[in-house]
Design a protein around this nucleic acid. Structure first.
Lengths: 235, 235
DNA sequence: CGGTAGTTTGAATTTCATCAAAATTTGTGG
DNA sequence: CCACAAATTTTGATGAAATTCAAACTACCG
């Protein structure tokens, strides 16, 4: 179900390490629709990085044993854990069509990875699939990461600030104003989404208005000091 | 119900609504690598559902105007908002290769969607891409939804309970025990990921032990009452 | 065996959820 | 268009939960 079917047992040694080597995808990865992808395995010791944020992305990785975490650092230098990864998980697939890694990944214990160079994968995708399907999938994967980042915040103020900045960025991306817009959802929905009570949403917005960061009239919002709002998001 | 809104001649009209019509996928969607996909546009009024959880999944959707939210309900009947969607967002792509919708989606205001029937898309993917690439991508997309759900919890107890159940499910999926395992990450990492202080993680674990839900020895954990743990996760 | 990192526990403080009620907006029918 | 009802939002008071700072404790490593 989650894995491809294997027929060719002669192929990679790598598969022997795979936690599900009996139906490991690697058995049929070396050749597909005329695209040949050379995979190899890689062993990482505890606290060793698979990749750092900003590194050129050369591969995606499948966890075969051990465990890892992926994280990013905010402007203040604080770390935000995005996810933990156990055998069977795939790392960095969200960057398949991007040049650089958006996050960092580090081994929590000795771990084995299956390394899939992306050059051939990218070519395969670009030739076989319509561009919109690729870009929407990648967009979705990256959006999920941003949400993870958003929801890892400690307090209501940070979450709401990050939430507003997220909405603003969304609107900006489609050519709308990122300083003045309407929230189309209720306070209750916002609170539900962010894991805080609707009353806290209301109070926090009120406080933000008092310090002059933004102006709200019911659901119409004007961001007065975006920089300050950014600081609230990471505080 | 969503079908039949558009016919062939309406295709260009659809593009006019698209917020990015200059590089709108619709321009080349009708034919790609021999696969022809008939798209339609659909207008939803406020509080109208795009789909309900459990509905047969017949399409994926692109938001062209308006806004929506997606959500799921837990066993107690409480709603958990997973995401808000603005123009340019794609809905339900995580279910592309599944039969039924995992979540529900509802319009927050009058909204226009672009409807892409998945039958041809699925066939296209299955024929063109290696199965492991499809399955890993879909797995990742669904995993992110579960994380979103996890982090929407209100208090530390619920989050930690859901977190443990998540890990347990992960281990079970790869054939390990889901009742007894090692947490490979520090309390600090757990707290960082879940948006709570490491001390709170520690205290909450201690409390869970006192009520007999689980047993912990440093990072080795034994789940004694999985049912009770499930109740904590939704409380 | 001592040092270090990670974890637990305690006490004080802050933040948040909850309950309640008031204020405001929205929707509906006359 | 107005009046009334319903829903949403704001505000207040209170108790509960979580953070913070601090210190003690424990496993782990050279």
């Amino acid at each position: 179900m989650l894995y491809g079917q294997a027929n060719d047992s002669s192929l990679p040694e790598v598969c022997k390490l795979c936690i599900r080597h009996k139906d490991c995808f690697a058995a049929n990865i070396t050749n597909y629709n005329g695209y040949s992808i050379q995979i190899h395995s890689h062993v990482l010791q505890m606290n060793e990085h698979v990749f750092h944020r900003g590194d050129e992305q050369k591969a995606i990785y499948v966890v075969k044993s051990g465990s890892l975490k992926s994280y990013i650092s905010n402007k203040k230098g604080d770390e935000q854990v995005l996810n933990f990864h156990v055998p069977g998980d795939i790392l960095s697939i969200e960057g398949l069509t991007q040049n650089n890694h958006e996050s960092s990944a580090i081994a929590l214990q000795t771990s084995t990875l299956c390394v899939l160079p992306i050059v051939q994968l990218e070519t395969m995708l670009e030739n076989l699939l319509p561009p919109w399907l690729i870009s929407f999938t990648m967009k979705k994967l990256n959006q999920d990461i941003r949400n993870q980042y958003l929801l890892g915040k400690r307090n209501a103020k940070s979450r709401l600030a990050a939430f507003l900045l997220e909405i603003a960025a969304d609107y900006k991306a489609i050519g709308y104003s990122d300083r003045e817009f309407n929230l189309t959802m209720s306070r209750e929905d916002i609170g539900n989404y962010l894991g805080i009570a609707p009353e806290t949403v209301s109070r926090t917005f009120t406080r933000m208005q008092k310090v002059g960061v933004l102006k709200m009239e019911r659901r119409h919002i004007t961001i007065l000091d975006g920089e300050q709002l950014g600081l609230l998001a990471v505080s």
